[in-house]
């Protein structure tokens, strides 16, 4: 009885990994393509561009890290199939 449920769980896990592939571009859009980016700019003009610089490059690096992890998971899944 345990076999079918474990295969269903495996399939669900695979699907989740594939659906994770949606998360990264969605996060990227949220970081860079929504008015959220304007909240980084403070009223003090002497600091805004630096903060933005740090914000963009940090978010960018995080997305790259996420893409690295996801690409390994997705290719592993593909190899298994």
């Amino acid at each position: 009885m345990s076999k079918p449920s474990s295969s269903i769980n495996k399939k669900r896990a695979k699907r989740k990994i594939r659906e994770l592939a949606f998360i990264l571009p969605a996060l990227g859009i949220f970081f860079f393509l929504t008015p959220f980016i304007n909240t980084i700019i403070t009223s003090d003009t002497s600091t805004d561009i630096r903060e933005l610089f740090y914000y963009i490059f940090t978010a960018w690096a995080l997305l790259i890290l996420g893409a690295y992890g996801l690409s390994r998971k997705l290719t592993n899944e593909e190899d298994k199939e």
């Binding site: 594939r18 592939a21 949606f22 990264l24 571009p25 990227g28 859009i29 860079f32 393509l33 960018w60 997305l63 790259i64 996420g66 893409a67 996801l70 690409s71 997705l74």
Partner: peptide, 8 residues
């Protein structure tokens, strides 16, 4: 970058 991280 957005296009490549959503390559799938």
């Amino acid at each position: 970058t957005l296009l490549f991280i959503g390559w799938w």
